[in-house]
Every structure is written in structure tokens, then in C-alpha cells.
């Protein structure tokens, strides 16, 4: 479904991704792990079209995406939930959800889709008309995820969704990922919480200093203490 080949990316003059290749198949949960600065965030930002300078190839369902702007990648069915939530705090919860539909062909079914989202995210349902700034960090993160999901994307990329969120909500979130997978959504996940992430991942790629250094099934990596120790321990 998503095929990344020899992806390189630069921040100014520094070459932050070197020949990253990876693949995500339909219906999988694939996880990127590695230390801070290993290139996980840059990889998904490059896939979404948010890096200024990239080379290589990113194809999604056969379409070459590299060089295309982010909004066109959304139209192909990619969704991205960035780090640090990034919900629009001046808007209400409902407006944030509507924002997830502004460019989607599904926007004609807006009311129906907001109802559906409220069912999946009961915490948001109670707060639809509150300004998003009144919510806790975890609720804001749920909103950011809900906003990315409301347009029914084919592939959702999440950058450290569990960071700084209370454990109860993290459990809810990972349950949601499994439900999404069961419903046919494909997920590419960047996580610091390696154990939790590998527990749900079909496959995982280990990144270090801008390159893929290891690739295995989630279960195999979960059992591989040596790799975890070498590339993921802080």
C-alpha cells in the first residue's frame, strides 16, 4: 500500500534521513521505533509532504507522492497526527472535527460523521461545543486523532500519540488502534512506549541516526532484548 524507497531528507544542510526504505501493507499496524533524533518523525513528515527537501520515492497505492504538496497526499487517503497534539485551541471540539472534513468528499455527511465520531470517542461527545483549550492533554490528543479519522483515511500516521498522557487514556488509545485495524484502517505509528507499541504492531522498523537498522515482526522485536537495548533504551 505504502512503499518508501531510498528516502533521504534534509533540514537545511544536515542530511537527516539516509536511504530509508520501508513498506506498509493494507490492514497492518507498522511501528517505527528508535531513540530521539533517530529520524522517526522526519520519516513520517516526509511521507506526508512536510519536509522541504527530500529525495527517493514514496508511493501510495501506486501513486508517486514525492514532490506533491501535503494537501494532495491527504486526498490520496493519508492522514497525519503530529506530535504535541496541534489541535486548534481557539475552536470548539465540533469545529475541530469539522476541520477534519473541510477538504473531504465526505463533508456532505458531516452531521452523521460527527455523530459517529462522538460514539467512538465518548469523551469528546460530552464536550462538542466547548473550546478545545478547556480539555486535558489526553482529551486534546483524542481530538487530534478523531479529527484525522473523521474523513475515513486509508492510512493514518501517528507521531508519539501516547506522550504525556495518563495511562488510562493510553490504554484506550491502543484499544482504539486495534479496533481501527479490525475495521480495515492501516496504521503507521511512531512510539516511544516501545513495549506497548510492539504489542499491537504487526511489523516494526528500528531507526538509528537516520537509517533503518533492523526490521522484524512486532512479536519478534518484543522478544529481542538486545535490539531494544541497543537502539531504544534512553
Amino acid at each position: 500500500m505504502l512503499r518508501v524507497e531510498k528516502l533521504n531528507a534534509w533540514y537545511g544542510a544536515s542530511h537527516v534521513l539516509q536511504d530509508v526504505s520501508l513498506e506498509v501493507n493494507r490492514g497492518e499496524i507498522v511501528c517505527l521505533i528508535g531513540r530521539n533524533g533517530a529520524g522517526k518523525t522526519t520519516t513520517i513528515k516526509s511521507i506526508m509532504g512536510l519536509m522541504e527537501r527530500t529525495s527517493g520515492s514514496v508511493t501510495f497505492e501506486g501513486h508517486e507522492l514525492l514532490g506533491r504538496p501535503a494537501h494532495e497526499r491527504f486526498a490520496h487517503g493519508l492522514a497525519y497526527v503530529p506530535e504535541e497534539r496541534r489541535i486548534v485551541t481557539g475552536l470548539t471540539v465540533r469545529e475541530n472535527l469539522r476541520l477534519g472534513l473541510v477538504s473531504s468528499p465526505n463533508r456532505k455527511k458531516e452531521a452523521e460523521l460527527i455523530d459517529r465520531t462522538a460514539e467512538i470517542f465518548p469523551r469528546l461527545a460530552e464536550r462538542l461545543d466547548q473550546t478545545a483549550i478547556t480539555m486535558s492533554g489526553g482529551e486534546q490528543q483524542m481530538l487530534a486523532i478523531a479529527r484525522a479519522l473523521i474523513s475515513d483515511p486509508k492510512l493514518v500516521m501517528l507521531d508519539e500519540p501516547s506522550e504525556g498522557i495518563m495511562p488510562v487514556l493510553v490504554d484506550e488509545m491502543f484499544e482504539l488502534f486495534q479496533n481501527l485495524k479490525a475495521g480495515g484502517t492501516t496504521i503507521l505509528l511512531v512510539e516511544q512506549n516501545v513495549e506497548l507499541a510492539l504489542g499491537v504492531a504487526d511489523r516494526a522498523y528500528v531507526l538509528d541516526q537516520g537509517s533503518v537498522v533492523h526490521h522484524a515482526t512486532g512479536a519478534a522485536l518484543l522478544a529481542d532484548a538486545e535490539i531494544q537495548e541497543r537502539y531504544c533504551s534512553v
Partner: peptide, 24 residues
């Protein structure tokens, strides 16, 4: 309006509006 929502959100965070499919 939908365009108004895009403008209000885009003034706060242009990148989010882009990844939600808007040609900023």
C-alpha cells in the same frame, strides 16, 4: 462557512490545515 473555518484555523496553525487537505 467552511472557508471561514479554514481561515480561522489556518491563522493559528497553517500546517494542520495543510495535512487536512487544504491547499493553503
Amino acid at each position: 462557512t467552511r472557508y471561514g473555518l479554514i481561515i480561522r484555523a489556518g491563522a493559528r496553525d497553517a500546517q494542520i490545515v495543510r495535512v487536512l487537505g487544504v491547499n493553503i
